[in-house]
Design a protein around this nucleic acid. Structure first.
Lengths: 205, 205
DNA sequence: GGCATTAAATAGTGATCCCTATTAAATTAT
DNA sequence: ATAATTTAATAGGGATCACTATTTAATGCC
């Protein structure tokens, strides 16, 4: 019989996911260096030892908060990108979804990863490497999708899929920067529409 | 007779411009929040009171360092953009120059402005506003050049010059982010070349 | 040399940084 | 009730943060 599964011992003051949600939001808005552990404990309603026993360290909490925040979006975005649609349309919807993420009402502007920890103190180099790796991975996902499109004859065989992926990666990063600066959803999508005119074979050639 | 013009009183330990050069480099590499006043005084070889008497505050020093750093490039870039070349060629050379700036050997990666102070602590909101205003201004410069091209018949009358400017602004911001992550000069220029295929009227239509 | 001037260095300030040794509280099992 | 277990809170440590009141040094002019 599965009992209420209530472990013995003092109950947690906050669930792990609830803590990660709060941390993700703070790091997202203020960045890694701009968010203090005092900010985090205060927002979670806990004291420092609780934070450290739950998450280990500030850096480790950031890693987990990134993972948590990404997990919420990656499923939907993968579905969009790997859908049976033509690769061009899948890419367009994928970029639109990112633009929506950059401009959600009641949430921080921009992307949690695209423009995070670019310039940083030396002591935070390993944190910067985390976000850089995530950016690289997201461009690899695009490249892999484009490679498949080449294999399936949707793109010319000589297409430079790597540059194509890094180009749309740059658009994603630029959108995040402009969203941080206050750009609205419509503007970001105008940007996407223009960027899509660089797609191989569009507009003649 | 113009004497050596040596003022009386104790000579400065470091000239203002030399100090700004060092500050610009540090802020460029580590960002505003990642650079401490101790970093700055140590690199300049001075003590805190000297820094504060010369520059006022950390924020004020950042403002002056940005101004100093921008002044070194803006002249050349304006010449490129306002040259008698066709606007498309001027834009290409302009973007190439920025790519070169993002990947100078022996200098920090990326751009001092394009990806600076995007996420930040609340207390640094006014600093973020400074860099945001500089980004906005640089896109306005592009738009103004494109507007002129429309007037001179180089671009179709119905061209959305604002979106066009924000699109190449996004490319500039994306290049800076990717340069921070280690992208080389060649990669950035491949990106530019692809972005230029979105230029109105290129590749048919 | 002595004075006025200018800018430096000394030696800190209180606040905040990330983090922790220790103690107290809240729960289930006996 | 008592014990065992699990987690939270108290209280503070050492380092660093941006910044400054005060004193000292280095120059040109007389």
């Amino acid at each position: 019989m599965p009992k209420p599964a209530r472990k013995r011992g003092r109950p947690r003051a906050i669930e792990r996911d609830a803590g990660l949600d709060i941390a993700a939001r703070l790091f997202w808005e203020r960045g890694y260096e701009g968010t203090s552990t005092a900010d985090l404990t205060k927002a979670m309603g806990i004291n420092p030892p609780t934070l450290y026993s739950m998450f280990g360290s500030k850096q480790e909490l950031y890693r987990q908060a990134l993972e948590f925040g990404i997990a919420r979006e990656s499923g939907r975005r993968m579905e969009i990108l790997q859908s049976p649609l033509p690769v061009y349309d899948a890419l367009r919807l994928y970029l639109y979804d990112i633009a929506d993420g950059d401009t959600q009402p009641g949430k921080p502007r921009g992307c949690m990863v695209s423009t995070a920890v670019l310039q940083h103190a030396e002591e935070n180099a390993s944190v910067a490497q985390m976000t850089a790796a995530l950016r690289e991975a997201s461009m690899q996902i695009l490249k892999t999708r484009f490679d498949r499109a080449v294999e399936e004859g949707e793109l010319p065989a000589q297409t430079d899929t790597d540059t194509l992926a890094r180009f749309y990666g740059a658009i994603i990063q630029g959108m995040s920067a402009q969203a941080c600066d206050g750009a609205c959803n419509t503007r970001l999508k105008q940007l996407i529409d223009l960027a899509l005119t660089a797609w191989p074979g569009k507009r003649g050639t």
